[in-house]
């Protein structure tokens, strides 16, 4: 059985729908509070997927995702590293990406350096809920269909991906770590609202060098049934649900490689 842990913590608020999305894709998903995982990190041994869902962990105090990232760095980093090194999968969604970036798991190109990538305030300065088209970029990321452009909602105030310098950005690109870019419905890049937050190179998602850890600003768990589409009443195919692909791919990968 594919087993997933959906992380809980103060302020995380997308856990239930993320759990449901994983279940729809055939995983057995459990929501576990970070305090319990720190108490008994062995729970990580029994599962193959960890998801850090969206929300406002610890109120986004100091900066989005920062306090939870700090907690993970100081209490769980070895266990999480071992989890990843064991070939397992980690997915961060929205606030979850901010956490993964700020832990350094997604936030740097060389293990010994400090954080080199960050996610900061949208150029608009505002929280925004809107739907965006995402062009897949990476061939190595196990969560994505490299050929399928998908449509998902974003809901964040801090989603702009920024690199410390050009070299870091080039390294990320050459390492094939950009999983999704914001595009319009025809696949073209553009300014706001196509790129809703001013993200460098229209980046919406990143993976680590293994392709098994992904962070995605948009919310795949919010489009796992047809009637979640913002104008589904206009669509001929009302069953399309693009967010499913992310969870389906994760479950499929685990089934094919880890069980």
């Amino acid at each position: 059985m594919v087993k997933a842990i959906v992380l809980r913590a103060a302020g995380i608020n997308c856990g239930l729908e993320t759990q449901y999305a994983l279940e729809l894709s055939g995983a057995e998903a459990e929501r576990i509070h970070i305090n319990r995982i720190i108490e008994s990190p062995d729970v990580l041994e029994d599962c193959q997927i960890v998801v850090i869902p969206g929300g406002f962990s610890y109120g986004d105090d100091v900066a989005a995702g920062k306090i939870l990232a700090n907690q993970i760095i100081h209490h769980l980093s070895d266990r999480l590293r071992a989890f990843i090194d064991a070939g397992k999968l980690v997915l961060g969604i929205c606030n979850g990406v901010q956490v993964l970036v700020k832990t350094g798991i997604l936030g740097k190109v060389s293990p010994e350096s400090k954080q080199q990538i960050t996610i900061t305030n949208n150029d608009s300065g505002k929280f925004e809920d809107r739907w965006v088209y995402l062009q897949p970029g990476s061939k190595k990321c196990v969560f994505i269909d490299p050929e399928r452009r998908i449509y998902l909602p974003i809901a964040h105030g801090e989603g702009k991906v920024v690199f410390e310098n050009e070299e870091v950005f080039e390294k990320i690109k050459s390492d094939d770590r950009i999983t999704f870019r914001y595009v319009d419905e025809n696949g073209n890049f553009g300014d706001f609202p196509v790129n809703p937050n001013g993200s460098t190179d229209s980046i919406a998602g990143l993976c680590d060098s293994t392709g098994r850890v992904m962070g995605l600003m948009p919310h795949p768990e919010r489009y796992v049934r047809g009637t979640q589409h913002p104008h589904w009443t206009r669509l001929k195919d009302k069953s399309r649900a693009d967010g499913r692909t992310i969870f389906d791919n994760a479950v499929k990968y685990v089934k094919e490689n880890l069980l």
């Binding site: 997308c14 729908e17 449901y20 925004e128 809920d129 979640q228």
Partner: peptide, 18 residues
Amino acid sequence: IRQYDHEVQGGSVVKPLG
């Protein structure tokens, strides 16, 4: 409307904007 998260919990069917 855009400043409000109107889709969290994944339950939306008819959204405030369409």
